[in-house]
Design a protein around this nucleic acid. Structure first.
Lengths: 264, 264
DNA sequence: CCATATCATGCGCGATATTGCATGTTTTTT
DNA sequence: AAAAAACATGCAATATCGCGCATGATATGG
């Protein structure tokens, strides 16, 4: 790799390779190394960046690192609304029940607000939920294992599903990416939907807690129809969808101005 | 990590990483470490804080946390010794390996320091470990389920053991409550010991990372003899037990004064 | 063979980013 | 309350960047 005259594509390939193997390149270094001007190198880097093969930074380029959206990010902005939903939903549990809690920021709030004097048994596929309960006494916790998806913050896959197929919880809190009349409960991935579907089919009570922004939305993969929902906890009880769900037999639970729960 | 010429964004990444793994950074230290002025470091920290990747405190920055604390107070949360052990132990992993990580504060530090560019697969029975890895890309994570013990922060019981009996990790990091010649590795509960024993018997490399205070101690339930330990990572390499372990074939790994790893 | 089109490249120039320093303010410590 | 440390802000020096344009080389077509 000397100052030989390299065809432009070859140079591009070489730079691509360098970025891939070394993780970083410096424009000025590449310029002297290939015997071209820095402008040319910058042009190359611009192309590679457009292809997604690198990320441009001041002075050169680095290997693309893609991971901006994590659960942690969403968690830090646990809105007051979600905390209220969590408290409301948690109050639906009854003594001695076995409770399934799904992953998600709202469900995490449910876990945080679970009463600790009812001898509950909590089953979850979300490590964050188990963690949140770890300072509580009086709550039995079972963790469902499997492949852990960092983006969702929960366990998925065959292992997980196999386990859940043998579980019949008294009450289940599952998260949803969308809730609408046509699409029912829906999720962003097929695997996620499959898992939630298993749980929804086996529980005696299915509780869905969502902020108003998700009402009326639908995601690509259906979990189940709206008729499977027995309780909807929301901060927007006046949404038309709520009335329709109520007619299908679901309880709509929200907070009144004075802070008490109301159900219709 | 010396006075290399680092691209400014790389420095940002590096600081981000330090905050993620170590929980706290000191502006003055970063300044000399990267060979830039403190002003520049502060600017970086301001940016990271704006992105939500850290929380600024007087003197530096800490991992985002909702309760405001001083840097001084924060220093005591995870001792520096454990962080060093974590970093050292994590460097023992090799490309493509399947890694088991046990529960415990030291092991959590190992997880935090795991390299993300080696295509590692991590198996753990501790939700906190899964959580700690959840903002990493390039690490496959498998969670071993079971009954969750809040006091230990890990999953135990028949379910867990059944799963682990089918696992043969390349390398395993397990925690121990005591390490002595007579009692070997030992734990405070029979169930805990049984679980660790399963893992110890199936891994090709067994790494134990302990602070010096645990050397020579023994807990009621034996996990296995000292001869099963292939690597001992410690901050007290002069302890007599280390020499004896070395004679049994274990590698003793610790940090020299200058900050580099040494093994005997 | 010549005219023209196309392309990669290098150079100049104004714009932008990064950095360190000076200055004044806020926070912590004594 | 005073001293020290850390901090934010404005500013100037330097480095890097993007863009337009000229140049030369190669390809295409008559």
């Amino acid at each position: 790799m000397s100052a030989e005259t390299l065809l432009s594509n070859e140079r591009l390939d070489a730079i691509r390779e360098r970025i891939r193997t070394e993780g970083r390149v410096v424009a000025a270094v590449l310029a002297v190394e290939f015997g071209v001007s820095e402008d040319t190198v910058r042009r190359d880097l611009r192309m590679l960046a457009a292809e997604g093969h690198c990320e441009r930074v001041y002075g050169g380029a680095i290997r693309p690192r893609h991971a901006p959206t994590t659960l942690r990010r969403r968690m830090s902005e646990a809105s007051e609304a979600k905390q209220r939903l969590g408290r409301l939903a948690a109050s639906l549990t009854e003594s001695g029940q076995t409770v399934f809690i799904d992953a998600g920021s709202t469900n995490l709030e449910i876990a945080r607000h679970l009463p600790r004097d009812r001898g509950l048994t909590v089953v979850t596929n979300a490590p964050s939920v188990a963690e949140a309960l770890s300072d509580q006494t009086g709550v039995e916790i079972a963790m469902v294992g499997g492949r852990f998806d960092p983006r969702l913050g929960s366990c998925l896959g065959g292992q997980t599903i196999e386990w859940l197929e043998r579980l019949f919880p008294d009450i289940a809190f599952i998260g949803t990416c969308g809730l609408s009349l046509e699409a029912g409960l829906s999720a962003f991935s097929a695997e996620e939907a499959a898992l939630k579907r298993i749980v929804a089919a086996r529980t005696r009570r299915l509780v869905v807690a969502v902020t108003g922004e998700k009402l009326g939305l639908s995601a690509p993969f259906q979990i189940s129809g709206t008729e499977t929902v027995s309780h909807l906890v929301t901060d927007d009880p006046d949404h038309p969808l709520c009335r329709e769900l109520a007619e299908l037999g679901a309880s709509i639970i929200s907070e009144t101005r004075s802070g008490h729960a109301a159900s219709s």
